[in-house]
Write a protein that binds this DNA or RNA. Structure first.
Lengths: 227, 227
DNA sequence: ACCTGAACACCGTTCAAGT
DNA sequence: ACCTGAACACCGTTCAAGT
């Protein structure tokens, strides 16, 4: 690994205070409710805690209720069903991911480096929050289109990438093809790598996920340069 | 879309008699057992049938038993637990996929085209057998390393790709970098695209999965050319 | 308005008992 | 040797009842 590459990785990966989305209760809801004071928030926090502690298993509604210290039926006052809870969890995941990607991009000094940063940030997020990543992209949350807030959070994460692609085109880093298609290509390659790593389908052979992500994204950009 | 591209797609996608793995009972087992004559095979067939009919839901052990016309406890004579059944299902999926990829590659006239064919074949397989694809790569089958036959089938599918990468390097289509890394890049990009499509995360905007796969793979190869 | 307890229909899994 | 029926501990979900 060259020293310039090492430096790039270092800059891209410097962690901020915390990547975690802020968990302060929204101003729309009263500070204290009946027994719990915003049980909705408590349930989402419990879900996040379970996902972080237990990389493998399912996220059960009863388990979430148990961790929040309420009865199994209590969540139904705040979420229509398990799908709705999962959608809210996934939504927060997308917000955290957008934040992580924006941070990774912010330290870059030019559009090409920004795109590399996004790729590394994406894979870093996935490996650091494996279970959360699975809820966001997996299939226990069956019909994502039913949850507009989730769709919005997801498309906001996508536009971080899309905007960077546009920047790259304007700067002459990539050719002026359909930007959506270039974004799909970039998304596909980091998403595929993230999935293969998270599901332990790939033998890393000593390389860190970030290094792999960097190599792979760099190669992709090479293929998109003006010719 | 250029006509040469159309021709390439046509050649790559010409379907053989059937992509399905052969389901004849293995010679190791007697042709008739107690009640069912190879209930193991009947269960795997039932599982495949359920996966094909029901793209969304979980694959339940009881549901498989029901479809095979046996009691809920019967599968335990043939599979240690649900994980073992899923592993066998995934294993057959990998065999079918290897076959599909080999077929897609066989019609190609040079290494570069063969690599494109693999990419298209991969994404085609995923979209044509969504539920099966999810069992192969998803997380309801938790620890794939516990099942050596599955690991072998998966790594055989991977070597179809790896061999083609080696061929491309020898033919001067791609540069002589670490072939494993090039294979990872190729795998990542088609796997990512397949996942995004299968989980409905991507708006196809009228394009077929195969066309997208072709464009994306072509772009990747451009990035790997000798410089 | 918000939560509990008990119930229902489902799972995966086990085990004695049947042929 | 292979399968069944009943049981167990778990789910998600509903609903009357409690505060």
């Amino acid at each position: 690994m060259s020293t310039s590459m090492r430096n790039l990785l270092k800059r891209i990966m410097a962690t901020p205070g915390s990547n975690r989305a802020k968990r302060s209760s929204s101003p729309k809801r009263p500070i204290r409710g009946y027994h719990h004071g915003n049980l909705r928030r408590a349930l989402l926090d419990a879900a996040a805690k379970i996902l972080e502690a237990n990389d493998a298993g399912e996220l059960g509604l009863r388990a979430v209720a148990r961790m929040a210290g309420v009865s199994q039926a209590a969540p139904y006052r705040h979420f229509a069903d398990k799908q709705a809870l999962l959608a809210a969890v996934a939504e927060e995941g997308f917000r955290t991911m957008s934040e992580a990607m924006r941070h990774a991009a912010a330290s870059a000094r030019d559009p090409a480096e920004r795109l590399l940063g996004l790729g590394v940030g994406y894979v870093e997020f996935a490996t650091a929050h494996r279970a959360h990543f699975r809820v966001m992209f997996g299939r226990e949350l069956i019909d994502k289109s039913q949850f507009p807030d989730l769709a919005k959070a997801a498309s906001e994460a996508f536009s971080v990438l899309y905007d960077t692609i546009l920047e790259c085109q304007r700067a002459g880093v990539t050719r002026r093809d359909d930007p959506a298609e270039q974004a799909f290509a970039a998304w596909s390659i980091v998403h595929g790598l993230a999935n293969l790593i998270v599901n332990e389908q790939l033998s890393l052979a000593g390389k860190s996920p970030a290094t792999l992500a960097l190599d792979i994204t760099r190669n992709l950009i090479d293929g998109m340069r003006p010719r």
